[in-house]
Design a protein around this nucleic acid. Sequence first.
DNA 1: AGTGTCCTTTAGGGTAGCCTAAATGTCAAC
DNA 2: GTTGACATTTAGGCTACCCTAAAGGACACT
Lengths: 235, 235
Amino acid sequence: MAAVTHAVEDYLKVIWKLSHRGREDERVPVGDIATHLRVSAPSVTGMVQKLQGMGLVQYARYDGVRLSAKGRKIALEIVRHHRLWELYLHTRLGVPLDRVDVEAERLEHVLSDDMEELLSRALGDPTHDPHGDPIPTKSGALGAVRGEPLPGLSLATPAVVTHVSDRHADKLRYLVTLGLVPGARVVLLQRAPFGGPLTVRVGRKRCAIDPELAALVRVSEESPAATGPKRRRAR
Amino acid sequence: MAAVTHAVEDYLKVIWKLSHRGREDERVPVGDIATHLRVSAPSVTGMVQKLQGMGLVQYARYDGVRLSAKGRKIALEIVRHHRLWELYLHTRLGVPLDRVDVEAERLEHVLSDDMEELLSRALGDPTHDPHGDPIPTKSGALGAVRGEPLPGLSLATPAVVTHVSDRHADKLRYLVTLGLVPGARVVLLQRAPFGGPLTVRVGRKRCAIDPELAALVRVSEESPAATGPKRRRAR
DNA sequence: AGTGTCCTTTAGGGTAGCCTAAATGTCAAC
DNA sequence: GTTGACATTTAGGCTACCCTAAAGGACACT
């Protein structure tokens, strides 16, 4: 059987991500994979056929792709690598939150099983990465993203940020400048009418933020200790 | 101009290493490169011609290869990456000394400039890796390997290990079990005649070691603080 | 100079992964 | 049920890197 190359890992990871957009485990269109990998559609078709030959995906022409159990296992391994590296880079090297993703993108392919073990242990066998995304366990179990979207928070209720979406690097960068990162204490002070901006206290500062952007931030009213990943640097 | 791929980096690094075996900057035979990269000779010829086209080496048929200034710069960058990662893996993750090399082999190709900066800083801008090999500076300056070969040490003189060759993984592994790693305190107690084994005290233990093997270990009589890289775990 | 040995190079192929252009399928709207 | 818009696949090619087999150069020994 053909080898699991970096490219194969990238494909499996993207397929995994895209099949989790809605609530259910969906078939992923070839075109979406192409877009997300910044690769042409024909390239995806070719690779996907190869992946099927390796037993990593199910694929029917003109009908999208689905991971097999074996494919999902590899995908989750890569996601685990990625998120462990992210946490490491952020907490130990002080890499800013909005840059850990790109760096981890390359490191995720370069982590032997032994190293994974050591890395995880050095981090205290963490359950969530610095964005608040759950880190799959070695056996492939995946926790949930905690908290609720910030715009849904009750007014004047102290809460802690549990998750910031890393999907859009530019938006993330801005949220970081506002201090809206996992572990930060927030209070929703005011909701302007007609979908207008939210006024939020973040730590000791106060800011106004569009609800659409705020929706990328999740918060929880639970005690801070049990909720966010430990952080050492804000940026 | 063609891109500096992983393979290109590997070639440059090996050429750099092989050109430093003797005291002078030598031309490196194609065959040696092939052996060290575990690749066929024709593959090396092809690649070396390509490298010349990129201005990274000088190359004349049947007469070996030499790095250009540009090539040496890249090679030293890779060596710097490699040794920074080695130190990091060893001191921060507890990767055993005899395994840091293989892991760093893959990580060295995956380190952006920003990350290199942060990694180096997190390590206290170190000058030597856990084997005692010097880490090139960002500008390409390379320190020396410190100390003298253990067999040359005066009898009964306390010394500190400054360097252990990582060229042979199996021998290194054995030296590690003896405790002959940078930072260890040693005393040469006895030299058997006719090239027989040396008796050495390593820390509180005592061992007999073949001089040829002992030659892979370098020691210095200087004070320990100024000499070995800091270590946290022996294996 | 001739010859054998040991490198090294040339010749010809293979795989992985990407591309563009052209052909083909799908689906909704008429 | 045809048509047009759009997604997808097929066809053909490119680059990077590796291989084996066979040809060619270097060098020492006679």
